[in-house]
Design a protein around this nucleic acid. Structure first.
Length: 459
RNA sequence: GGCGUGUUGGCAGAGUGGUGAUGCAGCGGAUUGCAAAUCCGUUAACACGUGUUCGAUUCACGUACACGCCUCCA
């Protein structure tokens, strides 16, 4: 089966041809760690998790290297550290911990490498030195190093911009010291009491773009297969990154395929702290919304389109995941981890996950429960949490508690004490337990928002 | 001003040059003590205009509207 990927570079869907099919290399821009991850951060994490799973399936578990970096030096981090009177390291290590917890909650596979920028300072310095030597960069009097955009003739080719119109655009800062207003920072001088490192140009810290160039080179090599990230990164971040890497490495290309995911809106509006519609993964966890439900919503719109996060969608997703859980939990299944062909075909068509979801519905209609379950696990909907994470009760205790109430209700029904049986049902429903009566038999299942605490209270 | 994306039924959301997905909601039915869940059936759409074509929602051009990027941002 051939994987097709929409390549930002060519603006076309292309058949994916790896540089080396025994060593597929993918780099995705990860978080700047200064705050809790919002659902906009979670989208690329989940989308590229699916791609990672797919690549491993197509080329072999050990043939895929997936790098997702962590930016742990940056103005926002420094601002937060001084605002909260904590060290940069305290801020970043705490945020990284949150990020990992959120990812686990969403059942995201761990990338092969999660390099931190601060661990690659010497590689960045080395790369900047090469760029200066090759006259692609220049040093200002105060020790600031800038990349010279004019020295790279393909500058703008990834984002389809041309230099003149960008400069005409009114928002480029006019720094007279720059040879071209678009020249960007490689190394930024700073005072000794700030976080920084010694360099040939004095004490300072790296510019934003150079870290990805240095880390991808170190871990994946000069040229690799796939580079991903949010659509907003196309310009300037990825444009600058390619420019640096191509110049420093003397290669034609940094990544062969560039993939960009669309933004997340909330109820039709851009998410922002000032609008008060800022939604983090943690917020959803606190509401007991299952990771699989969040995952479902994030995947229910094609990754290149904008995704509108709405309450209505969340409810729909909850119902679907609930139904899927029931299928998985109430059957003997043959699990081999292999999704069906139609699911794979949809995934291979530039990750058409909405179509994948349609196929999941079809599998249930066709009563192909094994195919369904294997696809379900492949897509990572086998979340974790409904029982474990939101309480200290173990599965057995919950079973006993629920079964006790079920028996009580059945007895009430036999005695035609429907008032009592209805009360028990309502109580269970409130706790997130769904009752299914089939003739004389009653089965039950847990909803994604199962919360046993109300089972413990008396009526 | 430049670059880019989108406009599909009540809502969400794929896709296709000819047989008009899928989910939710709606409607009709089965089942049920009542529900829920489940199952069966069913209504309903392709922004507008011109062109290409035997035939366009699907291709081309234009118009309108919406959104994103060009500054930190996933």
């Amino acid at each position: 089966m051939k994987l097709k990927i929409y390549n930002t570079k060519s603006k076309n869907k292309e058949i994916f041809k790896p540089l080396d099919s025994n060593n597929i290399r993918m780099y995705v821009c990860g978080p700047t760690v200064y705050d809790r991850a919002h659902i906009g951060n979670a989208r690329p994490v989940v989308v590229f998790d699916i791609l990672y799973r797919l690549l491993k399936y197509l080329y072999g578990e050990k043939s895929v290297t997936y790098v997702r970096n962590i930016t742990d030096v940056d103005d926002k981090i420094i601002a937060k550290s001084s605002a909260e009177n904590k060290s940069v390291n305290e801020i970043t290590s705490e945020t990284i911990k949150w990020f990992i917890e959120d990812n686990n909650y969403l059942n995201v596979n761990k990338p092969t490498h999660q390099p931190k920028a601060t661990h690659y300072i010497s590689q960045m310095i080395a790369m900047i030195e090469v760029l200066i030597l090759k006259k692609n960069a220049y040093v200002l009097e105060d020790g600031e190093v800038l990349f010279s955009v004019n020295t790279f003739k393909s500058y703008g080719s990834l984002s389809k911009q041309n230099l003149e119109s960008m400069i005409v655009g009114n928002r480029v800062d006019i720094d007279r010291r720059k040879k071209n207003p678009l020249d960007f920072v490689l190394w930024k001088p700073t005072s000794k009491n700030n976080i920084g490192w010694d360099s040939p140009w004095g004490y300072g810290r790296p510019g934003w773009h150079i870290e990805c160039s240095a880390m991808s080179k170190e871990i994946l090599g000069d040229t690799f297969d796939i580079h991903g990230g949010g659509i907003d990164l196309i310009f300037p971040h990825h444009e600058n990154e390619t420019a640096q890497s191509i110049c420093a490495n003397n290669k034609n290309s940094l990544a062969n395929y560039w993939m960009h995911n669309g933004f997340v809106n909330i109820e039709g509006q851009k998410m922002s702290k000032s609008l008060g519609n800022y939604l983090t993964v943690e917020d959803l966890r606190n509401k007991n919304i299952d990771g699989a439900v969040i995952r479902f919503v994030l995947l229910s719109t094609h990754y290149r389109q904008p995704l509108d996060w709405t309450n209505r969608k969340l409810t729909e997703a909850q119902n679907i995941i609930n139904k899927w859980f029931n299928v998985i939990n109430n059957r003997d299944l043959n699990i081999n981890g292999i999704p069906t062909n139609k699911i794979l075909e949809a995934l291979c068509d530039d990750l058409n996950i909405p179509l994948v979801i349609t196929e999941m519905h079809n599998l249930l209609k066709e009563e192909d429960y094994d195919g369904f379950a294997n696809s379900f696990f492949f897509l990572g909907f086998n979340s974790n949490n409904s029982i474990k994470s939101n309480n200290s009760l173990d599965k057995q205790t919950i079973n006993e508690m629920v079964n006790l109430l079920i028996v009580e209700r059945q007895n009430a029904r036999k005695n035609k004490d429907y008032r009592k049986s209805d009360l028990i049902r309502i109580k269970l429903e409130k706790a997130g337990v769904t009752i299914n009566d089939h003739g004389n038999e009653t089965t039950w299942s847990l909803k994604p928002n199962f919360n046993p605490s109300s089972l413990l209270t008396e009526n």
